[in-house]
Write a protein that binds this DNA or RNA. Structure first.
Lengths: 203, 203
DNA sequence: GTCTATAAAGAGATAGAC
DNA sequence: GTCTATCTCTTTATAGAC
């Protein structure tokens, strides 16, 4: 499923049916939740009949799962790429937070779905997603552990601090609105500072 | 609606019907969301027939609204009481965060409902709840503003920092589990430190 | 205040034509 | 691959007996 226009030579004005369904579902799930969204909501928003959804997806739940899986894997790539750009823990943590937060602000629609609709997944799908989310924790905790080991960071509980730093970014998906008081870049820059202070780095 | 046992002389083993409905609804809304919960789920969990719900509540939405309103007003009282215990901004912010976070961990069921089911409210009810939530922001921002004015805090954006500090506590409702790695007191104490660091207070 | 029974609408998913 | 039509079950809410 493509959620953005493909980078094909010809300009794509109308995404294909599968993509339109994915976009429509993402927006509906984000604003009304999985159980507050009907398959008719999705198919109508995608410009199709209710039956068309089942040509492209086995069920409403499987559509949510696909969106959630793609979203999680994309975010994991964002934070891994941020960490890979440096060897300095403070730089790594700062970049990670800045990119994670900016992403949650820019892509707040998708971020709401991946963070707040987990309970609607089947047990098997839920478990598969939790494995990816566990990687988020591991990446952040690892950066903090190395900062502490290097004497750059100081925290009484690296694990809880990692969780709190991720919390900051996740909650951005809950409150961020397009056209609000701050741009994604402004939030990202401020949260970078906050996260570094949380691990005891004075600027 | 009473959500805890009343302080009457005689021991109350079975709460009254209205209270049982409220408790059942709170737990169901917290775990499956408003739209994922049926009125049968609620009435059955409360030990009643589906029709009994409508003797005590006009609709499912009004039941959610009452739970949300009571929950918000209780939390507002928690943070106002914390601020009232001192005149020192650092002490006030520390107490506020500690009490807010502990409350969100202990009462995570109710906290999930008040923080994540707002979209299910009617427009009028939603607006009424947002007014209470605005007070949360005002209280925290005011403490930070006074800390900055007194030279105790340093932050490039008091408003965003206030939002981020509330975010930390709110997200506790999302991830906290009973019997998990930390007690509510442990989370609260650690988050107090994190919040003070966020405003530039070195311990 | 609680029940049984049910009305009325909405929901997920499928059949079969084109 | 999309449609119309519809099946079947679920859901909110109410009527009326006790």
């Amino acid at each position: 499923m493509r959620l953005v226009s493909a980078s094909t030579p010809e300009p794509v004005l109308e995404p294909d049916a599968r993509t339109r369904l994915g976009q429509a579902a993402l927006e509906a799930f984000a604003s009304r939740g999985f159980h507050g969204t009907t398959t008719r909501d999705i198919s109508t928003a995608a410009g199709m009949s209710p039956a068309a959804l089942y040509v492209h997806h086995r069920s409403k739940e499987e559509l949510l799962f696909e969106l959630s899986r793609l979203g999680h894997e994309r975010v994991l790539e964002v934070i891994r790429a941020a960490v890979a750009r440096s060897d300095d823990p403070a730089q790594q943590l700062g970049d990670l937070v800045e990119d994670f937060v900016r992403d949650h602000a820019v892509a707040h629609t998708g971020a709401r779905v991946i963070n707040y609709e987990l309970a609607a997944l089947s047990e098997e799908h839920h478990a598969e997603i939790l494995a990816v989310r566990h990687e988020f924790d591991v990446v952040v905790r690892d950066v903090i552990d190395r900062g502490v080991a290097a004497g750059a960071f100081a925290t009484p509980d690296a694990r809880m601090t990692a969780l709190a730093i991720l919390s900051l970014g996740i909650d951005v998906a809950r409150w961020y609105r397009d056209g609000g008081r701050w741009t994604p870049d402004e939030v990202a820059a401020h949260y970078r500072l906050l996260a570094l202070r949380m691990v005891g780095v004075a600027e």
